[in-house]
Design a binder for these strands. Structure first.
Lengths: 344, 344
DNA sequence: TCCTGGCACTCGTGTGTTCAGAGTGCCAAA
DNA sequence: TTTGGCACTCTGAACACACGAGTGCCAGGA
């Protein structure tokens, strides 16, 4: 009886669902009596108590102390998300509002900024949006500008509207004609290609220049390759940290590690990096690798201009969050951002 | 006796200084007895009590409740900052560390990112750094790139290393020769000039082109002027919000409005905007216009590559902060950032 | 076999009381 | 003008206590 993996019957699942819903709503441990009052389960409190005892034995719920109500555990939320919750679709007016808000954006920075604010507002939690990644995007244009005799500004423009610039210190003076030639040759080969492929396509380029110019060419190319490869420079935008204070006064001390985690771009990038490419990822409590986020859940999803995702976005909230609503909002926002990016 | 503006004698000032120092250190109201024990004032507690009564009557300190110690008021901190505190210079090792940390930066973004983290760490408070403003900087180069027959990418590079790009939709097809001509003419006139002067210098440019090309030229120029004038797009970087939790548990509820204020770029920009151009600005408690920051102090200062400041930076902390230390750190960091910018 | 009502038990929370300590204000004396 | 003394105030901690919510278990019934 004990320890065995028990097949939970429908009513036990219904009880768990009810517990999660009530606890998310009230933020207070929920007892058997209150449960049968608010949900018409068709059974008496005593029956529910038996089910609760079973659920607790299996680790889905937990009692803070004897004679208190029950609280879902991470495992309980996991079951809820996997089998009991439906993603709650946004209402038509909400969808219109999202659409309208994002349509006002003027450039990539603005799209990301608006997205993250929107997400924070919709979910009333902390929102995170990763800038479209370089590695999946393609080259729209590469520009070389002579700033000084031996200084060249390199500008890389991608199809997602992202611009990277690098200052190149050349070994010698750079002639304008050489620069023009190089610019033309690079663009002919690279435009429209994905960033990671570009280095391979430009390898034979130095050989086409006179020996005297080759050091310059290789220097410029080296910097370009660096810029192309620099995936870890991926930026992230954050909003809604003020919502942390709403997390409830039951664990206000835990707010500090969360704030610390949010300041570490690396942590956030890794967090989003763990998102599956397709579908939505929900990491609950201790499922998160970073221990500062052990009492939070992360809902994240990829978004992109076409079928493929070029970056991730998500929200971070207490494990006790409204999963269906949050997942609905995250999915809807990701979808619309993708559309916006595809249009521009 | 009462209500009159009283000239505070030296000992009263010493008492106020001692109160501020102790309160900042202990975060607890400070009483007369503890005061004479920790600072050798050469008088008895009773005397100090008399002085305290006078200071309270004049509004420099305040009692949370009868029979509690005294706490400095905003006015008290103001007097302390204006007349009693010396900016505490950084030690030589600290200065070296600052220098070394900032020297590692590779581009403007990195300089700002490092600066803000450094400042947050040094002061253990929330740090804010404004990107070097466009209006004070000068044009290093303006580049025009044809992306498509009727699409031009405009890139503006300033002497502070900042890059602004704009996508221009032209009324008709743009010839490469026209573009080259325009690029040359713009750069001849604009390079080295301050951004606000540039529009005036380019006004007569359309007249130098053939009638057929004028719509394109004016469109490009209009976008350029927009980019030049866009001062409110000034960006800000933030770090150290986790330090808010250290603010002390005496007003943990006030953390929310502060977080909200920090999320509003507009608020932060206005905050820094109020900084005097020369010298350091300290805004204490209710001196801050934004009411969410009524229980915080803002220490800010301008920084720049030369003599003039091109942007501001600062820290936000509880009114009960270590003013001499904070001011020293802010000043030192601003100075070194200025140097870094001047070198690059 | 499963559900239900009843009952005794546990334990956290909120309330009221007490007590010690810190700090003050005031006064008279030096 | 400073000082020591003294009575007074008030907060915060510690403690006791009652209340109530919630549980586990058991015996009886469908």
């Amino acid at each position: 009886m004990a320890g065995e993996v028990r097949q939970l019957d429908d009513r036990k699942l219904a009880v768990l669902r009810a517990i999660v819903q009530d606890y998310v709503g009230t933020e207070e441990p929920v007892g058997s009596k209150a449960l049968v009052e608010r949900h018409n389960l068709g059974v008496s409190p005593a029956t529910v108590r038996n089910d609760m005892a079973a659920l607790e034995e299996d680790g889905y719920i937990h009692q803070p102390h004897t004679s208190a109500g029950r609280i879902p555990t991470d495992k309980g939320y996991r079951l809820f998300v996997d089998r009991l919750a439906e993603v709650k679709p946004m209402s038509a007016p909400e969808r219109r509002a999202i659409r309208h808000f994002l349509d006002g954006a003027v450039d990539l920075d603005d799209v990301v900024a608006r997205t993250v604010r929107l997400l924070a507002q919709l979910t009333r939690q902390v929102a995170v949006v990763q800038y479209p990644s370089l590695s999946r995007s393609t080259v729209r244009h590469i520009e070389l500008v002579a700033l000084a005799p031996a200084k060249v500004m390199l500008v890389l423009i991608t199809n997602t509207g992202r611009v990277e610039q690098r200052l190149v210190d050349c070994p010698g003076t750079v002639g304008e004609t050489v620069l023009a030639d190089l610019r033309a040759k690079i663009n002919t080969r690279a435009v429209g290609r994905r960033l990671p492929e570009v280095p391979g396509l430009l390898e034979e380029l130095p050989a086409q220049f006179e020996a005297a110019d080759r050091p310059t060419v290789t220097t410029v190319l080296a910097t370009l390759f660096e810029a192309l490869a620099e995936q870890n420079e991926e930026r992230i935008m954050l909003a809604g940290t003020a919502n942390l204070t709403r997390f409830g006064h039951d664990f206000p001390l835990t707010i500090q590690p969360v704030l610390e985690a949010l300041e570490e771009q690396v942590v956030l990038l890794r967090l989003l990096g763990e998102t599956a490419d397709a579908g939505m990822t929900v990491r609950i409590g201790r499922e998160n690798a970073y221990e500062g986020l052990n009492s939070t859940s992360v809902v994240s999803v990829g978004y992109g201009s076409g079928d493929e995702s070029v970056a991730k976005l998500g929200v971070i909230g207490p494990t006790r969050m409204d999963y269906p609503g949050t997942m609905g909002a995250v999915r809807a926002v990701a979808r619309y951002v993708g559309q916006i990016l595809a249009e521009s």
